[in-house]
């Protein structure tokens, strides 16, 4: 059986989650490996969520927020952008393959972009194979 990765998504309510809904409303097709947690703002995302996701066995983590400057909460995603950039460095410093963690700015009108990003990211994670660096075996 081919490797079907588990990908955890965390999406902000106003842009990326709504964009994901739009992808559905327009019946775009994309792989079903992504499971999305909805938060109100990408700034809610604590780096510990991402580490935990990898510990839980996520093969990839995808974060989605509003485009910088378009945050529903004015400046939230600007803080998120900085924090997630640092998180990415720490993850890679700790030995995670660079392609497993991704941050994308997807607006409420970008259903197409959402589907494209998920498709592309899923393919990338498939080629990387299962994530073992952080996974805690149960």
């Amino acid at each position: 059986m081919s490797f079907e990765p588990k990908i955890l998504g965390i999406a902000c309510n106003w842009c990326t989650y709504t964009g994901a809904d739009l992808a559905g409303t327009t019946r775009l097709q994309y792989p079903q490996n992504l499971r999305v947690v909805r938060v109100m703002c990408s700034s809610r995302i604590n780096p510990s969520f991402i580490f935990r996701a990898f510990q839980l066995g996520a093969d990839g983590v995808l974060i989605g927020g509003c485009h910088p400057g378009d945050c529903h909460y004015n400046t939230g995603n600007l803080y998120a952008r900085r924090r997630l950039a640092v998180t990415k460095k720490i993850l890679e410093f700790s030995g995670l393959e660079p392609g497993r963690f991704r941050v994308e700015w997807i607006s409420a009108s970008e259903g197409n972009k959402f589907a494209e990003v998920v498709t592309e990211f899923t393919a990338q994670i498939k080629s990387l194979g299962p994530q073992t660096k952080f996974k805690i075996s149960q």
Binding site: V37, M40, S43, N46, F49, G76
Partner: peptide, 28 residues
Amino acid sequence: GCGLCASVCPSSAIIARHFTNDQVLAEM
């Protein structure tokens, strides 16, 4: 209710109601 403060709080003293650390981690 964006939750920004909760994720910058170094001592986890801020609780973002309905999106608490525990709730998000459990869902994950």
